[in-house]
Design a protein around this nucleic acid. Structure first.
Length: 116
DNA sequence: TGGCTGACTTTCG
DNA sequence: ACGAAAGCCAGCC
């Protein structure tokens, strides 16, 4: 497993998984941020689609990925409606009305944090 | 081969 | 400032 993902020619999904795995506990990121890091910023939807396929991959913390305003849009795809929130709260993140509190503070942008 | 779908984002009214 | 509509691209019928 190489440390740099850009060198590796993998499926778009695998690329997304790689980035999501790098998200530190207690931090969150957005679909657009991941898409931007992968170079396909024009289609942030694909990131969400990739996450859909991440079901079953326990290595991929999909609960740490929210939309651009910190809203838990993908919670409906989890086991239950509260699974995503509970997992985030277990990492010290406060969720109110499906929205991440202090989102800008715990926001983790791979393009910045990984210093591409 | 062609067209539909989607866990988003941006822009226009 | 809020609501609605278009745009985008890769995977899957």
């Amino acid at each position: 497993m190489p440390s740099t993902i850009s060198e590796n020619k993998q499926d778009f999904f695998q690329l997304v998984y790689q980035v999501v795995r790098l998200i530190p506990a207690g931090r969150v990121t957005s679909y657009g941020a991941i898409a931007n890091y992968l170079g396909t910023k024009k289609s942030s939807r694909m990131v969400g689609w990739a996450m859909n396929a991440s079901h079953g991959m326990k290595d991929v913390p999909a609960h740490r990925v929210v939309n651009r305003i910190g809203l838990l849009t993908g919670k409906t795809h989890f086991e239950t409606n509260s699974t995503m929130q509970e997992r985030l709260e277990a990492e010290g993140i406060t969720i109110i009305e499906n929205q991440v509190q202090s989102f800008t503070l715990i926001f983790w942008d791979p393009a910045i944090e990984l210093k591409l």
